[in-house]
Computed example of a mutant assay.
Amino acid sequence: MQDKEQAGIVFNVQKYSLHDGAGIRTMVFLKGCPLRCAWCSNPESQRPQPERAFNRYKCLSPAVCGYCIPACPRSCIFDIEGLLAIDHAGCSGCLLCARACPTGAMTVYGATRTVAEVLDLVEQDAVFYARSGGGMTLSGGEAMQQPDFAVALLREARRRHVNTVLETCGHCDGDALEEACRHLDSLLFDIKHLSTDTHKEGTGVGNERILENFLRVCAAFPSLPIIVRTPVIPGFNDTEADIRAIARFLPKRANLVHELLPYHRMGQAKYEFLGRAFPMGGAQLADGTLNRLRSVALAR
């Protein structure tokens, strides 16, 4: 199969991104992630398959519309006192309700796209990439959860002279990650915590594989620019000791940067759309914490 015919599941293509690699970029978000970070701002990315979401603010009400109710073969959608209610546990994921919805209140996160279809969208903004040094960034979820698709996208993008960046959590097959790195202009690599026990508490998995893959990539690709990203999360890694441990772990090389990202709750509404509770509640960083920890990271 040619790379351009390879297919995968994409849940968003976001144009004009300015924070995920050099210049103006198009972000391609792939479905599936091995982590379950409590602070995840893209919960729709976690499960590998397309999934239904419901935005009650767009719903016309069962009295006015109600097309989704008979569309559900499992009778998981109800009219309760004039409002739409969903039995999320009983949902089979058939997505027939979303197809029946005329307003977009019921929608689907994730669709099968080929490499050619994705890159045709990406290349629509080629003029902006040429002027700014931008290009395509693969993200997720975890892009390397779909390794064949991700590598095919990167390889075909390079054939089309599109600058390529991969954002990864590092919890993936090391051979596949190496193959992806051969087709990158730069790499964004998340390192969230140095304690494997704490990492598992916050993300659902330990960090051994992540750190092993990071060191492997550093050794195999000494010329590849790497930005190590650490999201600063209240109660998880927001102490000087946490950040200092990560900073001291990183190899000293001119083309490696350690970047701390601020905690935010911008994805909180998506949890409601998916029928899930937001794990972080009202947690927030204390004033001044991020700037103080950025000084610690720079001191490595």
Rank of each mutant, 00 (worst) to 15 (best):
L290Y: 02
K58H: 12
A277E: 14
V127C: 11
G90R: 14
F149Y: 13
D125G: 13
R229C: 11
K200V: 04
A219S: 11
M1W: 02
L285R: 10
H183M: 01
V108D: 12
R56Q: 15
L83H: 15
T196E: 14
D87E: 01
L260D: 09
G281T: 07
V118C: 04
V232K: 10
D20R: 00
C68N: 03
T137D: 12
A286S: 09
V115E: 05
F128W: 15
C218S: 12
S139P: 03
I86C: 01
P251R: 07
G267S: 01
S195T: 04
F273L: 14
L256Y: 08
A254T: 15
E51L: 11
I9D: 09
V232W: 06
R131F: 06
L177D: 06
R158G: 05
L211S: 00
S195M: 06
A7V: 12
A85Y: 13
P222G: 02
C172W: 04
A7G: 03
E5T: 11
L188N: 02
C169E: 13
K192N: 10
A297M: 02
F221D: 08
F236S: 02
Y263M: 01
F78R: 15
F214M: 05
G170C: 08
A180W: 05
L177I: 03
G235I: 09
D238G: 06
V108C: 10
E117I: 01
L215D: 10
L260N: 06
G275T: 00
Y109P: 06
G170Y: 08
F278R: 04
P279T: 10
C101G: 13
A241H: 07
I246P: 05
L166K: 06
F249C: 07
G174N: 03
T137W: 14
